[in-house]
Simulated scan of single mutants.
Amino acid sequence: MNTRPASEQHIVSQRLLMTFASLSIMAILSIVGFFIHHDYIDDKKQATRSASNIVQLVDRNISEVMRLYDDVLNGMIKTWQSAPLNSLSEDIQHQLLFSRAQDAPSDDGFFILNAHGVVVADSRTAIASPADLSDQAYFTAHRHGSRDALFISPPFKTGPDVDDWNIAFSRRISAPDGTFLGVGVAQMRLEYFYELFQSLELSPDDTINLMSSDGTLITQYPVTIRPLFGTYVGCLPGIQRLFDETDGSFIATSHIYGVEEFAVLLVDTDTRGARQIAEGIRKAVEGMAPITDGGTSVTISLGTYTRQVRTGDTLQELVRKADAALYEAKHSGRNRVVSVSEQQHEQNVA
């Protein structure tokens, strides 16, 4: 027989109810935390795999294109330095010099520059216009350098249109004794990279930036900062870390990582109680340590909706109205709780 007074039984019941509610909140938080962390790890692994696959594909493609351009350049220079070439007509000379130029994708001309930087042969026309290109970066690099290495120029404008951007591949032309004789140059339109990156089927929010090893931005897809093509961006913190790493991948902090949603069904709970539980979840998530070292803390927005159950009610309708409260919380500044009751919803509708 229970001999406790009714008031004591009521206090014990309240304590048990409060303990049960606290344990329920802790269980909810544990489940939420598990799924957020689990989804983050899965997304991180998937993003790393995708980035690695894209980098390998781009690296292989660009390496093949560079090798092709370099082969054509070397063949052109070798032909130019061939003694019998001068005995042939200009048309035959032109055909022999640039016989493989059409093999290079998106080419915008192959050229021979003499020791003064003046164009003496042009793949685009049989009679070259004697343009002075001695101020170009590739000519200066080869004139002052003795190494016969492939030089890749920064991007440069070639016309008035926004898409008129090229890069140049070039090699030094030297006499047997090392004397500087000129430069062999091949220009490639940057549209080649646009088409390559477009074929990768990136997500709508993805961006690819192609940089040289010295931190110069060559191109970007989708293009958002075209005026910065050819400028040095190696001073940016994310780029510095990229150059500091020998290989592998890393994750940098972005403004928005992503959105995870979950639902909690509370039985026999009024609007005030639902809001208290939601606030408990919000504060607990806000107090969690960052998922990554040096990262920002995770925040959460919650929406609650309460009503008396009636015949014909569906869970989908209840979730839809709670979802509307959630989006109101997000649009109001995030990291907050918005609670809507049945009475408030009917007043808003009216």
Rank of each mutant, 00 (worst) to 15 (best):
H38K: 14
T253Y: 08
L315T: 13
Q102A: 14
I11L: 13
P227A: 01
G238W: 13
D107A: 01
R336L: 15
R320G: 06
G280A: 11
D107K: 04
E261N: 09
K78F: 14
N86E: 11
S297Y: 09
S254K: 12
L23F: 06
I167L: 07
P154H: 11
M66K: 13
K157E: 02
F243R: 03
V340H: 02
S52A: 06
V285P: 08
T48H: 12
G145E: 01
I208W: 02
E191T: 09
E191S: 09
A137Q: 14
A252N: 10
V32Q: 08
V233F: 08
E191F: 02
L217G: 11
L266F: 00
H10A: 15
D161Q: 12
V233M: 13
P84S: 02
V298I: 15
A21Q: 13
F20W: 12
I112T: 11
G280M: 01
L16H: 10
D91P: 02
R189I: 07
A104H: 12
L29D: 01
G117D: 12
V340K: 10
A252C: 00
L23D: 10
D205H: 03
T314D: 02
R15E: 13
V309G: 05
R171T: 06
D247S: 11
L265G: 04
P222S: 01
V267S: 10
D323A: 09
